[in-house]
């Protein structure tokens, strides 16, 4: 039982981690709170669904397309909405993505209806029994995707010129401009990548989730607390924060009471805000 709960907690954690990293990236670079990150995930789920509907492709086969589409979608959103909001007052910068999230949710209700959808007949399915632990292959897809995406993100941010430019911009925008980095481009790419991460996550989630247009909202609170836990702006911290959230979610739910798990999460949020406002890994 314990191992099962641990495994499930880590699985859940990978979803929260993916969300949290997207939020942390956008916050770190441009100080925008990406409330719409969960909705991006939702949009990715529907893109996967529609690709499957039209071509019969498995979510795994569709994933590269979904990631690229979401990256471009992110860039479009940045250019049409975020870039303009950044020129406006701080309050509208904070709230613009909130409004965007609502537009996406309601837009999807108009486009696809409010019913629950799922992608049928997945390529990988079933359960592996490892002793007392039942490992769902569908959830494995999610775990592997999350790990690969995290790995790629770290490689990109630390090893590539563009990644370093984004980091430099997030650490000091003025200096980044002076060494020749086009900071507007860095912002745009960062926002696109954040959407692409949600793309990978949402696509993989269709493996083990049923979804409807408002699914993103429920995940957001966990994503945000994970970011607070990890320290705003630190992508590695956000990943660990996400994993911790998954563990808390499952352990309080299973061993204490299901009713306590949201309380536990909220209490932890308050504790962080009170005693460690910069997060476990923030400086």
């Amino acid at each position: 039982m314990f191992l099962q709960v641990l495994y499930e907690g880590l699985t859940m954690g990978t979803i929260y981690a993916l969300l949290a990293m997207g939020i942390a990236l956008v916050w770190g670079v441009m100080n925008i709170l990406s409330f719409s990150q969960g909705e991006f995930m939702m949009v990715a789920m529907y893109i996967t669904f529609f690709i499957n509907l039209a071509t019969g492709w498995d979510p795994l086969a569709a994933m590269p397309i979904v990631i690229v589409t979401m990256f471009l979608f992110g860039i479009l959103i940045y250019r049409t909405i975020i870039a303009r909001a950044l020129k406006g007052p701080v309050l509208s910068q904070r709230l613009v993505t909130f409004a965007l999230g609502m537009v996406l949710t309601n837009g999807m209700i108009l486009l696809a209806g409010g019913q629950t959808k799922s992608v049928p007949d997945k390529l990988i399915s079933g359960t592996i029994s490892l002793g007392s632990v039942a490992i769902s292959k569908e959830k494995m897809v999610l775990v592997v995707t999350s790990i690969v995406v995290t790995g790629l993100l770290f490689w990109f941010m630390n090893r590539t010129k563009m990644g370093k430019a984004i980091r430099a911009t997030s650490q000091d925008k003025e200096a980044a401009g002076l060494v020749g980095i086009n900071t507007q481009t860095a912002y745009m790419i960062a926002f696109g990548i954040s959407a692409a991460i949600a793309g990978a996550g949402g696509c993989a989630m269709t493996y083990s989730y049923y979804f409807m247009p408002n699914i993103g909202t429920n995940f957001m609170i966990f994503g945000f607390i994970a970011v607070c836990l990890g320290g705003f702006g630190s992508i590695g911290g956000a990943f660990i924060g996400g994993m911790i959230m998954g563990i808390i979610d499952l352990f309080t739910g299973t061993y204490l009471s299901v009713s306590y798990k949201y309380m536990a999460v909220s209490v932890i949020f308050l504790l962080i805000v009170t005693f460690k406002p910069k997060g476990l890994f923030g400086r």
Partner: peptide
């Protein structure tokens, strides 16, 4: 100075050669 504080000295110097 406006350095990139969370980057190594080497990376800071290399950022200078960005263009």
């Amino acid at each position: 100075r406006h350095l990139f504080p969370k980057m190594s000295i080497y990376d800071n110097l290399m950022m200078g050669a960005y263009s």
